[in-house]
Write a protein that binds this DNA or RNA. Structure first.
Length: 470
DNA sequence: TGAAATGTTGGGGCG
DNA sequence: ACGCCCCAACATTTC
């Protein structure tokens, strides 16, 4: 009897450049390819609503892909620490392979699982597939961890050698007997009544195949101009690979290597963004409380003003600042927001409204298809000013100026805040400055068809600076 | 990957 | 011709 190997997939839902899968397939043993949905383990940070939509489609795509190779994906709901040992015993598996993940709960879980498997005398083999650099590999001269991105990244680049991505296994032997699998549909990952994911379907095609297509489109159309165009939310100037990268439908190595043919100048900026992703995971590894507590201790006493009405206005895109509202509505409608706009809405929440950054973090967690614990926490802390290498507290975005600068024709506003769409460009970013007669001639009545600004930015800025003095 | 306040410079209007 | 003022444009400092 040939003993099967269990390949435990997590956020690495791909076949190409999947080190655990590749190594397992190379043994020639029959494989059980297993995905476990466990809402308990992550606690507060269980997979959010928008991400569930993505996950469903991603698992379906992977299953279709495996089917075409003569196999299938095994789905189980519950605790990996019981499911995997049970399965190992029942199937007389000889090993469990997986790619390492780095969330605090995942690290604990992996350690416990390794111990259980060791007792069962079953090999537990882990691989590096989701990051370019393991977080424990980089330390500063004092032996601590870097707290400034630039130094961290320079240190990484000194030693970084990205191996060539692994090809798709040509052939996978699948183990078939005695396998119990859930039906994906039973997991109820998709929204019903109302189906708020309709807008997602227009924009996104989850799955490995589409990840590669997206990358190709980006390299063909946008990378050459990335440095310039990436800041304009009305254009498709970014790669839009974030959800694929989060779920591991594409690996950072594939992205990295695919950029080699391009000129230094055009690719460097993009690689730096990959670097920020690495840095976020690095911070989360060394400071596991990153999602919940300010990295900078001084912010423990910060006088935030929790205000549910204002939070709701922000969430719904009804702050009265068109650029902010456009971003929040894009998020709600598509499960994604342009990065430039993320900074602006986050600055607005934490500085203009003085609402705790954790409130914004939670909202993004639930509404983003690319919600990623490391990236989301690190980025919110960065904007709020309490993170590592954070934006200084006095850097407060002016939503009107940002709008004029990065959406000069108001195209982005017209798309996401259509009730203002007829206004002359001059007033698109500041409708409250337009004469009332003009507004009403375009069907706008502030306070009725579109809100007045919920705070005065100039005043809010002064109040924020005052609060940040503490 | 900021914005506002403050400082400096230089051209033009004007007496 | 000259000094004075105003102010736009740009630079620097400050938050």
């Amino acid at each position: 009897m040939v003993h099967p190997i269990i390949v435990w997939l997590k956020n690495d839902l791909r076949i190409a450049d999947n080190p655990a899968l590749h190594a397992a397939a190379a043994t020639g043993h029959p494989l059980v390819i297993l995905y476990i949905l466990d809402d308990a383990i992550a606690g507060k940070w269980k997979i959010g609503g928008a991400s569930r939509w993505w996950l469903h489609n991603s698992l379906k795509a992977l299953n279709d892909d495996l089917k075409a190779m003569g196999g299938l994906l095994t789905l189980r709901l519950g605790d990996a620490l019981t499911i995997i040992p049970d399965m190992v015993t029942k199937l007389k598996a000889q090993a469990v392979y997986w790619n390492r993940s780095y969330e605090p709960y995942a690290l604990r879980q992996a350690e416990q699982l390794s111990r259980v498997l060791e007792k069962l005398q079953v090999e537990a083999k882990t691989f590096q597939g989701n990051l370019l650099i393991e977080p424990w590999e980089i330390s500063n001269k004092q032996g601590g961890y870097y707290k400034v991105f630039t130094q961290y990244w320079q240190s990484c680049l000194k030693t970084l050698e990205v191996p060539n991505p692994l090809p798709r296994p040509l052939k996978i032997a699948f183990h078939r007997e005695d396998i119990v699998s859930d039906l994906l549909g039973d997991w109820k990952l998709l929204p019903v009544k109302p189906n708020w994911a309709k807008g997602f379907e227009e924009l996104w095609r989850p799955g490995e195949k589409h990840a590669i297509r997206n990358l190709e489109r980006f390299l063909e159309n946008s990378i050459a101009d990335y440095d310039r165009k990436r800041d304009f939310p009305a254009e498709v100037g970014t790669s839009q690979l974030s959800p694929y990268l989060h779920f591991g439908e594409i690996s950072p190595r594939i992205i990295w290597k695919s950029l080699i043919p391009f000129l230094e100048a055009s690719k460097e900026r993009y690689l730096t963004e990959i670097g920020w992703r690495e840095f976020s995971y690095y911070l989360l590894y060394h400071f596991p409380k990153l999602p919940d507590e300010p990295f900078n201790n001084r912010f423990k006493e910060f006088p935030w003003e929790d205000n549910d009405n204002r939070l709701h206005a922000w969430q719904k895109g009804l702050t009265g600042y068109p650029f902010v509202d456009a971003g929040m509505r894009q998020l709600w409608h598509t499960g994604w927001m342009h990065n430039r706009v993320r900074m602006i809405v986050a600055s607005f929440l934490t500085k203009d409204l003085l609402i705790p950054w954790q409130k914004g973090e939670s909202w993004f967690w639930d509404t983003l298809v690319d919600a990623d614990l490391a990236n989301n926490s690190a980025s919110w802390q960065w904007v709020a000013g309490c993170g590592a290498d954070a934006a200084p507290y006095f850097r407060i975005f002016n939503p009107v100026l940002q709008g004029r600068k990065f959406d000069p024709d108001g195209e982005y506003i017209k798309k996401w805040v259509p009730e203002l769409g007829q206004l002359p460009e001059k007033y698109l970013h500041c409708p409250w400055e337009a004469p009332e007669v003009l507004l009403s001639s375009f069907g706008v009545k502030l306070g009725y068809t579109y809100p007045y600004p919920i705070v005065d930015h100039a005043e809010a800025r002064i109040a924020a600076l005052e609060a940040f003095k503490y």
